[in-house]
Amino acid sequence: MQGHPAANIPLSEGQPGGCSVRRLLALFSWALVLVLAWAALSLPSHSPGLVDFVHAELEHSGVVNPVTAVLLNFRSYDTLLEVGVLLLAVFGVWALPRERVWGAPLGAPVAGPVLHTFVRLLAPLMIVVGGYLLWIGAYAPGGAFQGGAVLAAMGVLVWLSDLAPLPRFSRWDMRMALLLGFATFLAVAGGVMVGGGRLLEYPRLWAGSVILLIETALTVSIACILILLFLGGVGEKRRATEGVREREAKQ
């Protein structure tokens, strides 16, 4: 197969260890199943957990959906760090040397008229769905991550069908878009301390608006981060077929 070596990594490479090692591993795994199953089944079947605390405080959280209340109010520390992890993954991918040509299969010019028309119809719809998921997160399952994932999928679809080039992520405004979610979250987390509150302790009256502000910023950042992570080390390839064209020109 022509193209980039990484495009075709044989899965059979490397042989699993010797027969006795494999037998030992299988034995260990079965023992693990039994021990874990025993531990899991010996847990009390009806523990109250933190449900009562969540429902008691739900009216002060600014949202109606208890999962969103936990994610962005009661345990927003988790979510703040989670966005940090997303950014760290992007930094990690960026820190690796860029590969100049990204060949088949993802960069192959597969886009026909059917895919073009379909993605044209789908893209605006996905923007609406992403926005809806962001908004509905306050009342029902949904939120910044779900909305951001739909928007990122739209970006990837548009890029793969070769409909439009992606924005250059090395541009400063695109970098700001990457940082927007984390920066907004951090600013709010610290900002509430000015008024005498504790870290991430939103004022009760404004909690709903604060959560919506954070989630909107997060949606934009998450969509950009997921697109970047999908692209991996592609660097400045703006069109899906760019790598293929370059390769063809070389031959």
Partner: peptide, 10 residues
Amino acid sequence: DPVPHALVLT
């Protein structure tokens, strides 16, 4: 319980 749900989302 919403707390494990939130943990899984994260």
